[in-house]
Design a protein around this nucleic acid. Sequence first.
DNA 1: ATAAAATTGAACGGTTACGTTCAATTAAAA
DNA 2: TTTTAATTGAACGTAACCGTTCAATTTTAT
Lengths: 213, 213
Amino acid sequence: MADTDDNLAIERADRPSSQRKITKILAAARAEFFGNGFSASSIEAIAARAGVSKVTIYSWFKSKENLFAEMVKGECAHLSQNFVDENLESKGVREVLIDTAENMLDFLTRDERVRFDRILAAEVSRDPRVGKYFLDNGPRALLQNLATLLQSAMDQGKMQSSDPIASAEMFVGLVKGHLDLLLRYGEKIDLTADQRRARAARAVDAWMLIHQK
Amino acid sequence: MADTDDNLAIERADRPSSQRKITKILAAARAEFFGNGFSASSIEAIAARAGVSKVTIYSWFKSKENLFAEMVKGECAHLSQNFVDENLESKGVREVLIDTAENMLDFLTRDERVRFDRILAAEVSRDPRVGKYFLDNGPRALLQNLATLLQSAMDQGKMQSSDPIASAEMFVGLVKGHLDLLLRYGEKIDLTADQRRARAARAVDAWMLIHQK
DNA sequence: ATAAAATTGAACGGTTACGTTCAATTAAAA
DNA sequence: TTTTAATTGAACGTAACCGTTCAATTTTAT
């Protein structure tokens, strides 16, 4: 990212009105970047949408690149909520896994995420740091959580694995299939609650079958 | 796409020199679009790279959008080679599946494909038809092939499935895991032949376990 | 109230790029 | 050879956009 250590944007914003404007700028940036990608979005349009002067944007964010990076940061924080169900005690193993898979599917099919995926991946060539930042704060952390959950599930159930991370990756693969691909290329997919649950259950059952003792 | 029925670019190219230039233009377009994405690439740069006048480009391709679409077409044809191994008779079931999985992994990790994925997905918002075109000529066809192969394998082996397409999707999911995600976001992954084979074998064994009678 | 910081609008210079026009040149077909 | 099509370079009009400067105005802290 442009600045991991020095958060230029937020630190200096003593004034509450400034804080408000920064928020509006980031929201406008999000909307523009999501709609047009990085290159095709203009600072002027972002300023107009935010109801803010162009100079104000440049005063808080040094450059277009920086604004984009800062927007990505916020989006990562917003998107990377954990969907791993951890109530292993109260529910049964299979139930917890299915709920987790359902959360994953819900997350995957969110239009917001799909568009974020598209524009962010496109900018990796321009600035590889945004890709790394996203991986570290998103998928990587989630896979670790998932591995931990699966390990616990294996301890409780009649399952085993030599490599929890590989098992977690299989879990992810079984749940996703090529759904993410279809979505990324514009396929409209809105699963009903039943469809989502059915798909989750199929993936979980397959996964459990693989990991049975 | 801009033109699925009337192939403006190729049809009218009687002259062999024109044919040559069209090829060079498409190659240059590929390089530029792959490097900078659609918006950040300029027709002028493409013309320069192709060693061709800008007017020539506009004479064969009506617009930048059209040039991009035409480039995508060519790339789809080039990338969508079938990697499904069909020698079920000569080799054993497991061997054929592993070879197929290996081919998939080889394809997935090709830098060319990764970059294509990035720029194409980014343009889906601008023109959804490119996404649909790609899906129809790439993944969709491949999944069908794979389903057919798996069905044959199931007939020969001690396996079964009620839904071949769903089984094929699981196969894909198991092989890919989240490798495609890592690659898309800039992770450098070059599997050795051994690693590739090991991963393919793991996926295949898991898949066979799921589908055992 | 006064001082300090933030914001604004407008304008500027410089750059880039799309797509078109045209007369001149080159290459190919008849 | 003649005729037809393709190609070129250069220029043009138009538009967009980045990032900066500046004087004027508004907002906030003290």
